[in-house]
Design a binder for these strands. Sequence first.
DNA 1: TAGATTGTTAATCGATTAACAATC
DNA 2: TAGATTGTTAATCGATTAACAATC
Lengths: 208, 208
Amino acid sequence: MPTGRAPEPTVLRLSIYLRCLRQVHAEGLDTISSAGIQERTGITAGQVRKDLSYFGEFGKPGLGYAVEPLLTRLSHIMQLDRPRKVVIVGAGNLGAALAGYQGLRSSIFSLVAAFDNNLSKIGRPLWDVEIKDVRELPRITQEQGVEIGIITTPAEAAQGVAELMAQGGIRSILNFSPTRIVSPQGTTIRNVDLMKELEVICFYLPKP
Amino acid sequence: MPTGRAPEPTVLRLSIYLRCLRQVHAEGLDTISSAGIQERTGITAGQVRKDLSYFGEFGKPGLGYAVEPLLTRLSHIMQLDRPRKVVIVGAGNLGAALAGYQGLRSSIFSLVAAFDNNLSKIGRPLWDVEIKDVRELPRITQEQGVEIGIITTPAEAAQGVAELMAQGGIRSILNFSPTRIVSPQGTTIRNVDLMKELEVICFYLPKP
DNA sequence: TAGATTGTTAATCGATTAACAATC
DNA sequence: TAGATTGTTAATCGATTAACAATC
């Protein structure tokens, strides 16, 4: 029986299970055991069962988990069962690369606009969307019901953009700028810091 | 006195301290307390002291930490005190965006080549480097003493690329492809999974 | 010196692992 | 049924926080 809240590491793993299950499903299997998930993800079978148990009882002793129902349940738990609108702010190289992702044109996510503050970019197309003036962000996201914002601006602009996003009704932000953002009231932020990752792998370089 | 090994979360924070110290140094301060670091990073003062204590005693009671010496010491601990050569494999949108990063043309990192397996890309320039045939990777990285590899290929190619990198003497890999790589013997891999991050923020969207 | 701040120890908190009774 | 595998409990492990004596 699901007791309190699931720990964050569990949530991260949930998305790994989801990817694993999609693949297993595509392969046509309709059942998988926690041991099978371990084999494919490297996450131990006990951990898998523990993680899932935060959300309910999905398996049958002796049989394992029915792939498709579990996929459906986990998608629902992760709130990936209805389309989410996304905007990207910062139409530089990284913003453009992310805007091109097929994953942002899927049944789960749809990219509705990109924004920049650079006049020479505003009005131009970026893949299949238009680059808009960032000052229009709150209005546009409000009108369209955008729920997710991706920040790919330089560090200096990030905090201001986060606040515009909050104004525009966005509640979840993925921040790629190399700076700490103070979460506007009511928003969740996840940070992806590419230079930090690069520095961290240096630490793990073999010591001379 | 530094006892055993530092936990991984500590290493991640080290790179945050480093960024903070660089900024503080640029502002011309020459001393900072753990409380000052807390103010700028959000990491509690006690945590800061604990983290640093895994590596030595860097502060003076009553005074705090001398910024420049600490910067030097931490850079050394993180192995960021001499230049590291980097290659990128996968010259798609993301690879191109990362290859354009100024941080890869710094005193810490230098990008020496990009690789792809697509004949129409091989031989073309990508920013200031040339796109080479991925089959040449082991030879080139070996010759040039490349230590870090960045993978921005599709999932299917990632494992093979990691093995080529290992052959070429690369010991640390940053993997952006959405798949689990089994580390070749002697290599460390860090994974950055953009679609996963996007899925995870959906979990934290306000529940209806 | 007195005030400030470190480094470290002990207490707490949280997550992972091991193990097994329940059950398909 | 017998074998397999779940969900869960208890034990372990590891990281964070609180607190304070040492000391600049």
